[in-house]
Design a protein around this nucleic acid. Sequence first.
DNA 1: TATCATTTTGAGACAGCTTATCAATTTCAA
DNA 2: TTGAAATTGATAAGCTGTCTCAAAATGATA
Lengths: 144, 144
Amino acid sequence: MAVKYVKEMEALKEHLGKHQLKLTRQRELILSAFLRQEHITAEAMYHQLAKSDPHLGLATIYRTLNLFCDAGLAQARHFGSQTKYDNISHKGHHDHLICTGCEKIVEFENEEIERLQEEVATKNGFIIKTHRLELYGLCSRCRH
Amino acid sequence: MAVKYVKEMEALKEHLGKHQLKLTRQRELILSAFLRQEHITAEAMYHQLAKSDPHLGLATIYRTLNLFCDAGLAQARHFGSQTKYDNISHKGHHDHLICTGCEKIVEFENEEIERLQEEVATKNGFIIKTHRLELYGLCSRCRH
DNA sequence: TATCATTTTGAGACAGCTTATCAATTTCAA
DNA sequence: TTGAAATTGATAAGCTGTCTCAAAATGATA
């Protein structure tokens, strides 16, 4: 199972090595669960993993997902009161189209928008480090 | 004082009327405080208003700011763990440039970006209702 | 492989922000 | 003025996420 995620595992190991951190059973488990899906919530992962490992603590999941963020594998995104963790290891930065009807999330990239963002920032004396762009609306199915 | 905000007050009254809600001293007070500034936090307003009205409850402020959102006067924005309420009554939609150094917030509008957003949405079968775009970086002063 | 300093974990306490509860008060239509 | 309905203030409760700390696991070293 974890075999599929060799590259991500290598990236994690590299980060662990650089920071005197250890590879644990829990970190492996959470990594493979994390890579299996997009936009997961710590709480959701907690319930998901509870089936196979009832004693895996919620705090460990939060800690580990934050670790993945530090390692550059994940990115936390706040949707309303929820924080979802995106997998950004296998792709570059991306933005989101979110259906307010069915909660479906579509990822997209648009170089032209990114370029214009830089332009706006420069005009205001800013240097951009990160950004978030979320478009909320209805997908074709939810429009009836 | 409230005289300056006749238009917003009218908009609020219209909303109240349509929903069988009542105009109270607190709602007037919070409206005038709200319109006096940008990007305010419920907590900040609570402390601000405590000087002139020590018994105005925090819950009332939250309730009232959410009411303003419903009425189309305000918009809630989540910056990290903080929720700030923007005045959107006197201007159209706008996006934010946020300095991660000094927390300064600069508003901007960019029609070209908005147009490209529509394009992306259409391409994916979405119809956009709202969006949020936040650029995080360092302002010229914080770059030393 | 055994040792052991260091890191990590799990469980629950705790913290910050926001909403719910409810008796008392206020509003406003009649 | 009256009274049904909405609102308020105070605080309890809820939610999400972090902190604490004793016990367990890891992994570098011998």
